[in-house]
Nucleic acid binder design. Sequence first.
DNA 1: GTCTATAGAGGGATAGAC
DNA 2: GTCTATCCCTCTATAGAC
Lengths: 213, 213
Amino acid sequence: MSDTRRKLIDGAIQTLRTRGITGTSARSIAAAAGVNQALVFYHFDSVDQLVDAACREGTAELVAEYRARFLAVTSLRELLALGRDLSVAERQSGNVAVLAQVLAGAQQDPRLAGAARFALALWTTEVEGVLRRIMAGSPVSELADPAGFAPAIAASFIGIELYGGVDPDAAASALDTLQALSVLAELLDDLGPVARRALRARLRRTGRGADFS
Amino acid sequence: MSDTRRKLIDGAIQTLRTRGITGTSARSIAAAAGVNQALVFYHFDSVDQLVDAACREGTAELVAEYRARFLAVTSLRELLALGRDLSVAERQSGNVAVLAQVLAGAQQDPRLAGAARFALALWTTEVEGVLRRIMAGSPVSELADPAGFAPAIAASFIGIELYGGVDPDAAASALDTLQALSVLAELLDDLGPVARRALRARLRRTGRGADFS
DNA sequence: GTCTATAGAGGGATAGAC
DNA sequence: GTCTATCCCTCTATAGAC
């Protein structure tokens, strides 16, 4: 893969981070990459396609970096702690912010939507794998399945990331709260069969899944 | 308040919804509002300030519309059900999407950051009031306080809203999952003193609040 | 592959007539 | 308060020299 192509991808990531989706243009990316503006079109045909590639490749690399840590997780609390570490560490490098910006742009742009869907799927798959492992045999699985739980966690972290851009204190306490609540899962495991029975009784009374209103 | 001013606010909201923060300009807003482009600057001085006003006023009106329903909530599950209703209803009118767009733009723009902070505070205050009411006396308050819980809920819903723009199915099951998990709070209330004792024992073992790693 | 130069569209903002 | 006309900027994208 050519050196210039790499520079442009990195330039796009940096520009999305520092100037947002509204400030991301062929000119601003090229300036950040230290290359000529016309090369954006030579290598990627359009700005959209460069942003698309940057989002996909940037996320793929980041997820790969964290894979070992995901594999080491053995509880919901550890998973959320990893999420918080990731959120703090990536506030510096800004890779999570990039996904948030692309996701915002994706609401009206089909090409960016594809990139955002791809990036979200990478994170969600990783989280889902962890959940599948740590929820096995836990009473928590009476309530939620990993396939629905994983996007909920991914979405929450992205929302908190955006929140952090305008109110860091509130975002920090939101992160703390999520982690504190994960103690509920451990409590359920502590209580074991007692909890499971109580849970089943309550679910019978309210009706599972469909109608919660 | 002048008729044109109102049209411009509505036009800005509609433009943010249908074209996103990247497609929102004085020209596009004026077209949506059916007024002359120069009037944006006569009434609001700049596009930024119009978007700022649209975000603040639009959110204030929406929160006011839902206030009665917030007041009627008596459990965490009902609160999340209201959130889901709101999320579904506003996907049509698009008012939540507007906040998401402004929030994305706010990451790099101090003026928009003020508007986003204001809008988020409106929602969070409402949610916090409900939590303060329904968490009173519940064992859940051993784990989380309303001031940290409220932004976590607000952020999660915004994240899910954005997720829904690229993957509606995943977003729907994320909403379902959050609601299913709220049954844990009810279980805790069912178990009463037993749960509270078990919770305290576990918190003593792990250490409260600070270090969850 | 990389550069300069530029066409052509759209954007923010203002001046000045009405 | 509202309109037209316009300035000047930035943007995407391409043509063509090197």
